[in-house]
Design a protein around this nucleic acid. Structure first.
Lengths: 112, 112
DNA sequence: GGTCTAGTTCGAATGTGTTCGAACAATAAA
DNA sequence: TTTATTGTTCGAACACATTCGAACTAGACC
């Protein structure tokens, strides 16, 4: 993996609020079965992953547990997408969000 | 590991120049035997690790292969230290530098 | 059609990072 | 003791990030 790509991923995770968002997506979408999730990351209703590895209504859920304006959260989602860490798609009012495990793996492998 | 500590480490690695510096220290100090090092990271003279895991004259060597002023490089070293990624000590004119493997491991474990 | 909900885009304010050169301190070398 | 080397600290310039509210778009619902 390119050095610049790696720096891009690290930059996306360098902001605490954005890292929190990412962890929430990660823990709710892609964490292995039984992985513990800290209370502060617990999403209201705890409804998770009707489609395997994909979080439905991700944006709304994240908004529910962050004290940031929706425009700011939208911005952070864009940054995470931009770094290739997540993929989002809208279908009507449905906002689906998926964590790219390959991106995580490439960070891990980077400093092998 | 605390979320804020993690963000701190990611922030330290989010700048491409600083990441380059870190990789150079890492590859020359702590990379397992036989690990390949890209040509762009090769330090002049290639003299490495007289003391196991510690790079002597780290600052000078990094300066040799970066197109940045010394004050800027000094700043980047400080940031890496601040994030707990490296430890540096001076003894006379000798600048010794060591990569903290635990910091690396904690990143890897963070997204387990 | 009107209205609500969900998310985006824009502009602005404020904060943080990156980089440099100059001046400095401490050690080594002459 | 002067001079060179090594790295730090300071101030300034500039770039980039974070955050917000307001205005907007698109679909859902009445």
């Amino acid at each position: 993996m390119e050095l610049s790509n790696c720096a891009k991923i690290f930059k996306a995770l360098s902001n605490e609020q954005r890292l929190k968002i990412f962890i929430m997506l990660y823990k709710n979408c892609c964490a292995p079965e039984g992985a513990k999730v800290g209370a502060e990351f617990r999403i209201k209703n705890n409804s998770c992953c009707p489609i395997s590895g994909t979080l439905e209504k991700a944006f709304t859920k994240i908004c529910d547990c962050m004290k940031l304006s929706r425009s700011t959260i939208s911005h952070h989602f864009k940054e995470l997408q931009n770094a290739g860490l997540i993929t989002c798609e809208r279908e009507g009012q449905m906002y689906r969000c998926k964590v790219n495990k390959e991106a995580i793996d490439s960070i891990k492998n980077f400093l092998k």
